[in-house]
Computed example of a mutant assay.
Amino acid sequence: MSTVGETVFEVDLNALRHNYEYLRSELRPGTKFLAVVKAYAYGHGAPPIALFLEKLGVDYFAVAYTGEGVELREAGVQAPIIVLHPQPVHFEEIIAHRLEPSLYSEEVLQRFAVTAGNGGLREYPVHLKFNTGLNRLGFDAGDVDKVVSFLEQHQAVKPVSLFSHLAASEDPEERDFSRVQISAFKQIADRFEHLAGFRPLLHQCNTSGILCYPEAHFDMVRSGIGLYGYGNDAIHSARLRPIGTLKSVISQLHRLEKGESLGYNRGFIAERPTITATLPLGHADGIGRPYGKGKSHVSVNGQPARILGNVCMDMLMIDVTGIDCSEGDEVIIFGKDPSAEELAATAGTISYELVTAISRRVKRSYKE
């Protein structure tokens, strides 16, 4: 699809298929695969991504909030969907749309069980999250006994899985810490099985966990950023393909003479004659001000072009001096060169933040 005249986030579904199949190849046969499609599938568009992955055989999906799960159901996604951070105010909506909540505290467990019970439900599927060191959400190891006791008295809910989250699985300097987390989770699972008499699905690995800790794959793994083409280190990223390319277009060219300024607060002052190009995207589209003032570059006809001055809400300006280009030419903000990882690094952040920040007003285009 041509991008002439507009900014578009182009998503390559063949690359998504490649990443899924590569990550699957790292698993033992029978290990289930949970695709994380929260935050609008990391900016790439949750309904089309989830529907495509469902056809490929993904076993589970995960979203952060209830509304994200509802959007998938309304788009036709049938596979189980975990809501990772449900709020009690949405419990009835979760049940109405066949979503499965992550329950992470005694109060949340009790309140959901009451909601399910009041609806006449029995053994509604839930997921119990245990904290093993991330210290964000989750029951503690010492809570296992009272959780099992509560479940025995309240038949409205039944755990489909127990899970935890590795805090630093991508960091080789933190391997000892990760192994402590894995060991702690195994002890929690063993204690739960001993008391409850059954063993739910176990899952702890995120993308980096899949690639670095095969001993912790358990019954299911969760992948987010890896599906979208990033592996958190050069070796693994080389085996993955970024699925999203953010493209824009040159709206207008300007010539600045030495001493002339550009943009708000005169954020760039030309030290020599300079040709600039204005693009129709800005910080309201997800390319924030930290990328301006020469810190970052985009690609114009295969040539790097620095972002000049302060990024505006709806526009940014680049230096195309010496680059053969015209108004209407395509500009690559990130994709292969620069990649989202490379562009994000120039602003002191990570690919996750960059891709999830792409505004919904930016058109998504899908190709296979």
Rank of each mutant, 00 (worst) to 15 (best):
Y60I: 03
Y228C: 09
N206G: 13
A234V: 13
T356A: 12
N19S: 02
A216F: 08
S105Y: 05
C205S: 14
T276S: 02
D233A: 10
E327I: 04
K293L: 00
R28C: 08
V355D: 00
L134F: 12
R191E: 06
S208T: 02
V147W: 13
R136W: 02
G133N: 04
V148L: 08
S296K: 09
F61E: 03
P125G: 11
S183L: 02
Q78R: 14
D171Q: 11
G45P: 11
I82P: 00
A50W: 12
A305H: 00
Y366E: 10
I318E: 05
L195Q: 02
L51I: 13
A277Y: 00
E368K: 14
G263L: 10
L27V: 01
R266T: 13
K295N: 06
T356M: 06
R191G: 04
L240V: 08
F33Q: 09
M315N: 12
E71N: 09
D219L: 01
A238P: 08
N206W: 06
Q110V: 15
A141H: 07
H297A: 12
Y230N: 01
V70R: 00
G76S: 09
Q87D: 15
V63I: 12
P172T: 05
P125S: 02
G267V: 11
P304Q: 08
L195T: 01
G209Q: 05
L56T: 11
I332F: 13
L162T: 07
G229E: 04
P200M: 11
S223R: 00
I94C: 08
Q181M: 04
G209N: 03
D190T: 05
L166N: 15
H194F: 15
I94M: 15
R111H: 07
R306P: 02
V298T: 03
T245Y: 10
S164F: 00
I243Y: 05
M317W: 14
G67N: 15
G288W: 10
K158D: 01
V37S: 03
L354G: 04
N310M: 07
T245G: 10
E330P: 15
S251W: 06
E215Q: 01
E193W: 02
R364L: 02
A357F: 07
D314P: 06
G142Q: 13
E368M: 15
E71V: 12
P214K: 15
L27F: 03
Q153P: 14
A15I: 09
S2Q: 00
G259D: 10
H217W: 04
H297I: 11
T346N: 07
K55Y: 01
L195K: 06
E92G: 15
H217D: 14
D59V: 11
V300H: 01
G142V: 06
G322T: 01
D190G: 06
P280M: 08
E106T: 13
R360K: 12
T356H: 05
K295M: 02
I250T: 00
K258L: 12
L53R: 11
Q303H: 01
T356Y: 05
I275E: 11
N232S: 12
F192L: 12
V221D: 07
S105A: 07
E271V: 07
H194S: 10
E10W: 11
V58E: 08
G43Q: 04
D140P: 06
I275M: 14
H283F: 14
V249S: 09
A357K: 09
D145N: 05
P214H: 13
L240E: 10
L134N: 15
L162D: 04
D285Y: 03
Y230P: 09
